[in-house]
Write a protein that binds this DNA or RNA. Structure first.
Length: 991
RNA sequence: CGCGGAGUAGCUCAAUGGCAGCAGCACCCGGCCGAUAAUCGGGCGACGGAGGUUCGAUUCCUCCCUCCGCGACCA
């Protein structure tokens, strides 16, 4: 039907139209969408849609429920969300149960501060209640923030390490370690305040200036000196040690030397002293040796297990090897006490001898090496800082006051070579400000080298026969260390791969796990002491009984109930038969808590399973959660609790420096959310390679926002041009598509394949760059720019336009899905604005997050791609020439141009261009293209010329044509538009 | 100091034993004014430093420098 009057040309142009706003307004739009999701119960909707699919379990490492979230926490959770969402869209059933780490020192300290002096008079139950409240409040705030970031999960039922069920399981797992014979009671040095008479955490220690006596002490060699060097045969040889804590000398059990250093024996006044070769001069001048003569040199390694006599006691002091021994001197390992000082490495004068006084009961390094050499963890100092009765000459003395007396004593005995006052930074109690000591106290340990009792014979979920979890040679059960190494090397995949080295190194060197803490906010160690014989009782069946009580009442029961109310009825001491007991007062290391999650969570939530597919945390967790979880997994099920361990880097500032609130270089996620939206943080997480440190700064966030805008507008263009497109009615069959549209869909196939692969391999930055590049280069700058003319000016229902729309629809649909794990809000918004056919199966998906990733449509065509690559290269050349013409003021818009090629007849280009002759003007976005045969020798400058287009500018499509004016009805339109207008008139108007 | 990691343009990423990318963004210049607080084009620009292996290294090796994490009853 032809309309009466000619159409108004402007109104016949199909301009984009969509509800998908150009301005995202994320700060407002995101909360609104979150509300919709929550009304939809989106997380459950996804769960239901995946019922029966293969499971994929990412087990959440619990963040500490103390402070508000920072950018690092946000990164951690967002990357996890990438994993869960992408796995879901790959078709898996991927539940996400978030958790919180609720026990531990920071909360207790926070509560301490809040309670102040009141705390001293409060029963532990009350303190614990305050801690519980604090944790609850903090985790609520964190939950709110995590949800705001668009992270979907079981937020209404997260796991809490302080829940009754969890605490009970933690206790049971401790029982499991006991049952398998890994648990023992031993001693270990901790910071100890002799005034407050309490153990201190490192966090409760502050370093202040302090003056200590610095002493050089002789330890006579008891072994045959000729074992070291023949030159020493028959001489009086001494090892010379240095310390700033003379009071630890009575506890000396060894002298450590570095196996890699060279040592020297120097003679002075008839005596021979062994010191590090490099320190000969220093020591000689310090101690005022007149004529020191080096009589022998030998490697430290040669001194291993020689025996000295204690400087004054009738006791051996073993010479041992330790890499911790330094030449720096200041701290040396005489005790761990002033190790901070050593790290400062400022201009402190050198002190020390390279022979390190070692008292395993009074120093951390000393303890570690002492364990290695099987030394006693000897600590003849009581809780008030007094020497015990067994210490000759000084029994009952307070150690700090004893210092001077010991120096005097050493001098009298001739064991002292030199002494002076020494200023250094020394740890002090933060509460009473007095200097603290390192003191061995009774602790509970989990042995890494004890062989497990009761090897478990069962099959795990992977069908691995766990009876094999033994030493292959001897068929004996292996130790935790050996088992851990085996899992690390053989059954866990580490991403990045160096994680394996790191874990292995860590496991090889680590000492037994001290799991006891002298605190109240945690899971109590369910052990008892016999009132009759003082026997420590850690018994698996008793622990089970206690755990059941925890299950009902939380572990507060430990403090609320008396020992007999916690023990099974009629329990008697297995050793002496007594029936009265006291309770252990220590609690478990919080790492034991969180490590327990692989059982307490994976086995207790129906939707989860042990082992998890993936653990994903920051690199700090190799020593932390990865490690403690591995121990628990081994104790409970003889295998690692994870199949794959992913690590992310640390968040650093724009210069690559660590972020600190105090340095003022930190970026607060909540600020970014307020300003730009959570989506920008998410996109930032995807824009960088999270395996390494992630830089974040205002500039970087600005770049990310720019990228967001670009992708958003790309999607918006597609959606805008799909106005009136009904996929069911209007989709053009693949074989009917215009070649350019087919090319675009082939490119899309390529992107889909690459992005899917990147998601599968957890390479989220590749996802981002792939999609971003696709949006900017392939779509925005090329495809969209070219088809714009067709979309706008072809008749709305024309095949040419439908062909483009078919491609656009697929592209927008794929973009929404592929972006969904990253841009959770925007992808959903695209999804919402995508035209859907009635009865379209996808329509049931209330959100893109229920959908799956697209799969390539099989349109990749190497020949077609090669041809178009060629055409696009030509296009780039033309574009360059057009710019030249523009600079020369020949043209403004490219439509004012006519492109003239002069190409050799025998070349490849001419036939190619000829076969696309009618498409070239659209490809180059010019009005006319002329192809001439050139007989001249190849001349670069004459191949391509830009001229002014011929004819008049068409009012409708803005192209130039000599045929404008031919139509009486539309005198300002070109022939192409006249045809389109006729079509429009026949169809009766727009779309 | 030990263990582990990283260092490609202002920013975020690539690739490669042979002149580092169709890089994108930023920046500069210009076009368009029918993706318009959008979009298109052009320009600009880099292998931390020093050795070594090699015909040739950004890529392999060694050392150095810088930065990050762990080495804490903090996470």
């Amino acid at each position: 039907m032809t309309t009466e009057t000619p159409l108004e040309l402007k109104k016949t142009v199909n301009l984009p139209k969509t509800n998908f706003a150009q301005k995202a307004n994320l700060a407002q739009a995101e909360p609104a969408r979150l509300k919709r999701w929550s009304e939809l119960n989106l997380y459950q909707l996804i769960r239901e849609s995946r019922r029966g699919r293969d499971k994929f379990i990412l087990h959440d490492g619990p963040p500490y429920a103390n402070a508000d979230i920072h950018l690092g926490t946000a990164l951690n959770k967002i990357v996890k969300d990438f994993v869960v969402k992408s796995r879901t869209m790959l078709g898996y059933d991927a539940p996400y149960v978030p958790g919180y780490d609720c026990h531990g020192l920071p909360i207790e300290l926070f509560v301490d501060k809040k309670l102040g002096a009141k705390k001293a008079n409060m029963p532990p139950v009350s303190v614990r209640r305050a801690c519980r409240e604090h944790a609850t409040e903090a985790l609520k705030r964190q939950t709110r923030d995590f949800q705001r970031l668009g992270i979907l999960g079981l937020w209404e039922n997260p796991y809490l390490t302080m829940s009754n069920q969890y605490e009970a399981e933690t206790a049971r797992l401790f029982g499991r370690f006991v049952e398998r014979g890994y648990v023992y009671k031993g001693a270990r040095p901790v910071y100890w305040c002799v005034y407050d008479q309490t153990a201190l955490a490192e966090a409760e220690v502050e370093y202040r200036e302090h003056t200590s006596p610095s002493v050089y002490v002789k330890f006579p060699l008891a072994s045959d000196p000729s074992e070291i060097d023949p030159a020493l045969a028959g001489r009086k040889v001494f090892f010379l040690i240095w310390t700033t804590t003379p009071w630890t000398l009575p506890a000396n059990l060894a002298i450590a030397v570095n196996p890699n250093f060279e040592y020297a024996a120097i003679e002075n006044g008839g005596e021979v002293y062994v010191v590090a070769g490099e320190l000969v001069e220093t020591v000689a001048s310090k101690c005022g040796l007149d004529a020191p003569q080096v009589v022998a040199r030998f490697p430290g390694a040669k001194l291993d297990r020689l025996e000295c006599r204690h400087a004054w006691l009738e006791r051996k002091s073993l010479v041992i090897l330790g890499e911790h021994v330094t030449l720096g001197g200041e701290a040396d390992a005489e005790t761990e006490l002033d190790v901070k000082d050593a790290r400062d490495k400022s201009a402190t004068s050198k002190a020390g001898t390279g022979c390190v006084h070692t008292a395993p009961g009074h120093g951390h390094d000393d303890f570690v090496i002492g364990k290695q050499y099987g030394l006693d963890i000897y600590c003849p100092v009581d809780h008030a800082g007094r020497f015990t009765a067994e210490v000759e000459h000084f029994a009952g003395e307070r150690v700090f006051e004893a210092n001077a007396k010991i120096v005097e004593f050493l001098k009298e005995r001739g064991a002292l070579l030199f002494s002076e006052n020494y200023n250094h930074r020394y740890p002090h109690c933060w509460r009473c400000k007095n200097p603290v000591i390192f003191r061995a106290t009774p602790q509970w340990f989990i042995s890494l080298d004890a062989r497990a009792a009761e090897p478990v014979v069962e099959q795990d979920e992977d069908g691995r026969d766990l009876a094999n979890f033994t030493d292959n040679e001897t068929d004996a059960p292996v130790s935790l260390r050996a088992g851990a190494l085996r899992e690390v090397e053989q059954s866990v995949e580490w991403i990045p791969a160096w994680g394996e080295d790191r874990m292995r190194n860590m496991l090889k060197g680590r000492p037994d796990w001290c799991v006891s803490r002298q605190r109240v906010w945690g899971v109590p160690i369910p052990a008892f002491y016999c009132a009759g014989c003082d026997e420590a009782i850690a018994d698996a069946s008793v622990i089970k009984h206690v755990a059941d009580i925890f299950e009902r009442e939380t572990s507060d029961a430990w403090y609320a109930r008396e020992a007999q109310d916690l023990l099974p009825a009629g329990f008697a001491c297995p050793k002496c038969g007594a029936t009265a007991f006291t309770k252990e007062t220590d609690i478990l290391d919080v790492w034991f808590d969180s490590g327990s999650s692989c059982v307490a969570v994976l086995k207790h939530y129906d939707e989860l399973q042990f082992p998890a597919d993936v653990y994903l945390e920051g690199g700090d967790q190799y020593r932390g959660w990865f490690n403690s979880s591995l121990m628990v997994g081994l104790a409970a099920h003889d295998r690692a609790p994870y199949r794959t361990v992913l690590t992310h880097g640390w968040v650093v500032d724009g210069q690559g420096k660590a972020m600190h609130k105090s340095a003022g270089n930190s970026v607060s996620p909540n600020d970014v959310i307020k300003q730009s939206g959570a989506e920008i943080i998410r996109l930032w997480c995807a824009s960088s390679d999270y395996h390494e440190d992630m830089r974040c700064s205002d500039e970087i966030l600005q770049r990310v926002s720019d990228a967001y805008r670009k992708m958003r507008n790309t999607a918006r263009f597609a959606l805008g041009n799909l106005d009136g497109f009904d996929p069911a009615r209007d989709t053009v069959g693949t074989s009917e598509l215009l070649e350019l549209d087919r090319w675009a869909l082939a490119e899309l196939d390529d992107v889909i394949a690459k992005v899917r692969k990147a998601y599968e391999e957890y390479e989220f930055h590749s996802v981002f760059h792939e999609l971003y590049n696709f949006c900017t280069v392939t779509l925005s700058a090329r495809y969209f720019d070219i088809i714009k003319d067709r979309l706008y000016t072809a008749a709305p229902r024309s095949h040419a336009r439908r062909s483009a729309q078919t491609a656009l629809h697929r592209i927008a649909d794929a973009l929404a899905r592929l972006l969904a794990p990253v841009l959770v809000f925007t992808a959903d918004e695209i999804w919402e604005n995508l035209p859907r056919a009635e009865g379209d199966a996808e329509k049931q998906f209330a959100s893109v997050h229920v959908a799956e990733f697209p799969t390539p449509a099989g349109l990749r065509d190497a020949e077609l791609t090669a041809r178009w690559d060629n055409l696009f290269t030509t296009r780039d050349v033309v574009l360059g020439k057009l710019e030249e013409a523009r600079v020369a003021k020949l043209i403004g818009s490219s439509l004012e141009a006519r492109v003239v090629f002069s190409l050799p007849v025998d070349g490849e280009m001419l036939p190619l261009l000829r076969s696309y002759a009618s498409d070239l003007r659209y490809l180059f976005i010019v009005s006319q293209v002329e192809l001439r045969e050139s007989t001249e020798p190849h001349d670069k400058n004459s191949v391509l010329k830009i001229e002014r287009a011929e004819g008049e500018k068409c009012e409708r499509c803005w192209s130039y044509s000599t045929r404008v004016g031919e139509s009486a009805r539309y005198p300002t339109a070109c022939e192409r538009c006249v045809e389109a207008l006729g079509e429009i008139e026949r169809e009766g108007g727009a779309s």
